[in-house]
Structures are given as structure tokens and as C-alpha cells.
Design a protein around this nucleic acid. Structure first.
Length: 497
RNA sequence: GCCUCCAUCGUCUAGCGGCCUAGGACACCGCCCUUUCAAGGCGGAGACAGGGAUUCGAUUUCCCUUGGAGGCACCA
């Protein structure tokens, strides 16, 4: 297989919002396609009528777009192998089911769901391997079949899997994998509603669309031998397989909604950057060497190789994602960060803050908050004091660990007068306030801490003088006055100032 | 239960017989810087699941055990 002929596909089913595992699969396929100059195809596997979820398709495409995973063929862009929705390819599947039927590789099954369940229960009871179907209809005599047909009992088409022997396939990541055919069952190819099952649609489309490599999650290895058998029955050459390690939750089970935020769109909503997400996901199951952690999209494309995909499942680490997001935030230009931050501030800041949020103002404080942010979504919460009118905080905070109310009041009063005709530039603020601290006989830490709480309502903030400079004289003086009022009133009660 | 896969620090991983007294990163803990918080710098703690076999030599090869995961639908 020459590298230029690589055609890989991401084949999601629109049954929900794509979680990071799905998208990681998409990413690896995309990286492989781009690395080898091949095609990346998106095919929608919408063969389950009952599980369709409204908005899922858009969410899937949105997630791909957000991460910059562009597709060469698929929804919206079309291509020579369309349509790319399986629900629009039904004739194709019927054609090959017929071929399978004619060739004696498939048969009609009239079993009712109830009978199936019963048979399964019996097999389980007898502690046989829990095969899903007892092959009741596999060798129906013509009379029985005619009777069922006459009663127009609905039927499905099942694959007539070989009863003995073995099936081996080669996996690019795991090597040869062998299954005893006796373990395989007669899986349903065509459902009673006329739609194909995943197994049928998947192999027909992969073949017709000339897919060269099937890269999909590990959970598919157990159905791969059946697929291989199907290819054989149809006299087709199977594609190359690469089963990707699973992504697990912290409890090491298959990642799902119950592990909290797992949908890619959720991460976007929380203020994770696509570059960080991309970088992080790429490292879940793939690595270049023993030290490189930060990769640009281009580097990822350049270095990606199937040979370097690991076999073991990986636990999704929220901590590391957060760290990496912080790295990317710090790496942004101030202008860029300002733009990215604005929508989050618009959305998250308290309603009383007047809109639109000033871009110019945000641009001013970006240098103060950039290295303190790990997600964009934290900004409003952490640095809301730059925007709001009223500060809410416990008066006790003003006193810190050592200050008495008396010294605090004296300190703030002194600050007030000193700041009256003070130019609000960080350097000169520092000069003036340092001097004042020593005049008052207060340690700088204590005095600055007092001012910090008075002007921001918080004990942890960006550097005080720069913060005050951005806040401006009016705001700072007003806030100090209100802090004084608080101290003179009941110091226990957190009253709005 | 049956089948398949997997197995290095808590987590992501490097390691493809000697370079390993096992490297990096996140998280954690100290110290430094410092008006707080970050960021940054320095340092620390922390892993080859167990047992055989092969070999002059196993983290690296093979086998078994154990553990974990996935699959066992007219879902994908």
C-alpha cells in the first residue's frame, strides 16, 4: 500500500454528543491521513432509527471543526464515494445481502425477540459461552420456511458464520489476533426494518469507499473476525486494521457521561483551547519520544506514526489537560487572548456588569491575568473584581492574620489621603505605598494585604499596584472608603459595600 | 461465565538484551524568587504485578499465575 493511497475514515453514529474518546479516534485518523498525504473521510453511521439524537450530527461536525480536523469527503463537502450517510445507501446494502443469500453465506431468521431472549437465557444457564444466537433458523427446512413466509412473520437476515476453524487477522498495533470460529455467532446483517446493522454497512462501505486502513477503538476487536469473514464471503480484500487503545475514566472503566465532562463541546464551553485539546488528545495513546510534550498541529502531522501508538488503555487526566491548557494560554499574544476572553466574560460576568464588555479594558488587564489562567472560563470568577461595582467579602479578610481593627482603619485612612493626589501608575503607587507602610510602622506584606482586600475583595490577586492602576483612582478610593465603613460597622457580617 | 486484548511511578508515557543505581511530564512535597496568587528556577518522594524459562546478562524474549479492560443486541 503506497502511502499516497491512504484513505481513512471517521465513522460516528449520531446518537449523542461525541466524547473525547470518539474525537481521539477521529484525530488519529486525521493525523494519519494528513501525515501520509491520504484522504480523511467522515461517514455518518445512522442505521439505528431508534437511537438517533437531535443535534448530534451538528455536534460531531462542530467538534471536528473546532479542532481543525477537516475532512476531504463527507457531510457538507461531498465526494466521489457518496452519499456519506448510511441511511441513504440502503439499496447498496440490500444488493450485497442478496449476494450473500445467493451464495449461501446468509439466511433468513424468523425468530422473535422473545424467543431470542429465552434462548439466550437458556444458554447462560447452561453456562455455555454466551453466544447471542442459537442458530435456530440456520437450517430451516423449506416447509418451515414457507410456513413462516406465508404467515408473513418479519425476518432478519443473518450471516452464516463458519462453525469451525479459526479466523486470524493482523492488527497494525497488536499483531496477529486469532479467534476460534466456534466462538462466533450468526450475526444479524439486515434488521427487520430493512436497515443494515453496523457490521454489514461498515464493511460494505469500507470496501466501496476504498478505505485502506480501519483505525477504530479497541472495543471493536471482537467483531473484527466477523468482519473479516464477511469480506471473505463477499470475495473482497479486507482493509488494514489498527485498533486504538481505549480511553478510560479515573475509575479505569470505559469513559462515559458518568465520568463528568467528557463531551468535547463541554470542554470548549469551559474555556479549553482547541490547540491544547488537540495536543493533549494526541498524547493519549501516542508519543514521539521520552520528552516532547508540546506539539503544534503541524508537528503532530509531521511526526505521527501508527508504530508509536501504545497498546495499553489510557486514563483521561483532567489535571494534565488543565496544565496544558495553561501552557497554551500563556503562549498566546495579548491581543489573541483578549479576543478569546471576551465571549467568556460576556457570558460569565454578573448581569449587573454593563455590556458589551470593553475590549480595550480587557486588553489592559490581560497581562495581569494571563499567567494566572488555566481555562478561559475561570476568568469571570477569578477576576470579576475588575468589572463589578459591588464587592462582597468578609470583613475579617481585611485584617488578615495580624492586623487589629484599629491599625487597619488607620492604615486605610492614611492610604486614602496619600492616594488623593497620587498618579495611578504602578511604579509610583508602589513608591508611595511602600513609604507609607514604613511611616505607619507596618510590614509591607500586612499593609499591601490590607489594601489588596480593600481594593479587590480577595486575598489572591495579580500584583497589587498594577491591579490598582488598571482599576483606576476613582474605583480604588471608593473601595477603600467602603472597606472603612465595613470595619466601622459589624466586622463579622459580610455586608455588601 | 466464555472469548480477545493489555500490564513501567497515583496519572500520561520513554525504554524495542547490556547505555537503567529505569528518563520526561502532570499531580504531590520542600526550597528559592516574591506584597498575595500565579508563572519560573532548584530539589524530593514515587514504578518495571508475581513466578518460572531462555541468555554471560533481562524492564526489554517465551510460558504460567494474578490483575485490569473490552466484547458477548434486530446499538454502534
Amino acid at each position: 500500500m503506497s502511502e499516497g493511497n491512504v484513505r481513512v475514515r471517521f465513522a460516528p453514529s449520531p446518537t449523542g454528543y461525541p466524547h473525547v474518546g470518539n474525537i481521539r479516534t477521529a484525530l488519529f485518523n486525521w493525523l494519519f491521513a494528513r501525515h501520509s498525504g491520504g484522504k480523511f473521510i467522515v461517514r455518518i453511521e445512522d442505521t439505528d432509527q431508534s437511537r438517533k439524537v437531535e443535534g448530534a450530527l451538528e455536534s460531531i461536525l462542530d467538534s471536528l471543526r473546532w479542532l481543525g480536523l477537516d475532512w476531504d469527503e463527507g457531510p457538507e463537502v461531498g465526494g466521489d464515494f457518496g452519499p456519506y450517510f448510511q441511511s441513504e445507501r440502503l439499496d447498496l446494502y440490500h444488493k450485497y445481502v442478496l449476494q450473500l443469500l445467493d451464495g449461501g453465506h446468509a439466511y433468513k431468521c424468523y425468530c422473535s425477540p422473545a424467543r431470542l431472549a429465552q434462548a439466550r437465557a437458556q444458554m447462560a444457564e447452561r453456562k455455555e459461552s454466551m453466544r447471542s444466537y442459537d442458530r435456530h433458523c440456520r437450517d430451516l427446512i423449506p416447509e418451515e420456511q414457507a410456513r413462516s413466509e406465508a404467515q408473513s412473520i418479519t425476518s432478519v437476515i443473518r450471516f452464516k458464520a463458519p462453525l469451525d476453524g479459526q479466523t486470524t487477522f493482523h492488527d497494525l498495533i497488536r499483531g496477529d489476533i486469532t479467534f476460534d470460529n466456534s466462538e462466533l455467532d450468526d450475526l444479524v446483517l439486515l434488521k427487520s426494518d430493512g436497515y443494515p446493522t453496523y457490521h454489514l454497512a461498515n464493511i460494505v462501505d469500507d470496501h466501496i469507499m476504498e478505505i485502506s486502513h480501519v483505525m477504530r477503538a479497541d472495543e471493536w476487536v471482537s467483531s473484527t473476525p466477523r468482519h473479516v469473514l464477511l469480506y471473505k464471503a463477499l470475495d473482497w480484500e479486507p482493509p488494514l486494521f489498527a485498533h486504538l487503545p481505549m480511553i478510560l475514566g479515573p475509575d479505569k472503566s470505559k469513559l462515559s457521561k458518568r465520568h463528568g465532562a467528557t463531551a468535547v463541546t463541554e470542554f470548549r464551553g469551559q474555556g479549553y483551547l482547541p490547540q491544547a485539546m488537540l495536543n493533549f488528545l494526541a498524547l493519549l495513546g501516542w508519543s514521539l519520544d521520552d520528552k516532547t510534550e508540546i506539539f503544534s498541529r503541524e508537528e503532530l502531522v509531521q511526526y505521527f506514526a501508527i508504530e508509536r501508538i501504545s497498546k495499553a488503555a489510557a486514563v483521561f487526566s483532567h489535571d494534565k489537560l488543565r496544565w496544558m491548557n495553561g501552557v497554551y494560554i500563556r503562549d498566546m499574544s495579548a491581543e489573541e487572548l483578549t479576543e478569546q476572553l471576551l465571549p467568556f466574560l460576556e457570558k460569565d460576568l454578573p448581569v449587573e456588569v454593563k455590556r458589551p464588555i470593553s475590549r480595550e479594558y480587557v486588553r489592559q488587564l490581560v497581562p495581569l491575568i494571563q499567567e494566572r489562567l488555566t481555562t478561559l472560563g475561570e476568568a469571570a470568577d477569578l477576576f470579576g473584581f475588575f468589572f463589578v461595582d459591588k464587592l462582597f467579602y468578609n470583613t475579617e479578610l481585611l485584617l488578615g492574620k495580624k492586623l487589629t481593627r484599629g491599625t487597619a482603619v488607620a492604615g486605610l485612612e492614611a492610604a486614602l489621603t496619600r492616594l488623593e493626589d497620587q498618579s495611578f501608575v504602578a511604579a509610583s503607587l508602589e513608591e508611595a505605598l511602600r513609604a507609607l507602610a514604613s511611616e505607619l510602622g507596618l510590614k509591607t506584606g500586612e499593609f499591601f494585604g490590607l489594601l489588596r482586600v480593600a481594593t479587590t475583595g480577595r486575598t489572591a490577586t495579580p500584583p497589587l499596584f498594577e491591579t490598582m492602576a488598571v482599576l483606576g483612582k476613582d474605583t480604588c478610593l471608593k473601595r477603600i472608603e467602603r472597606a472603612l465603613e465595613k470595619l466601622r460597622n459589624n466586622p463579622k457580617e459580610p455586608v455588601p459595600v
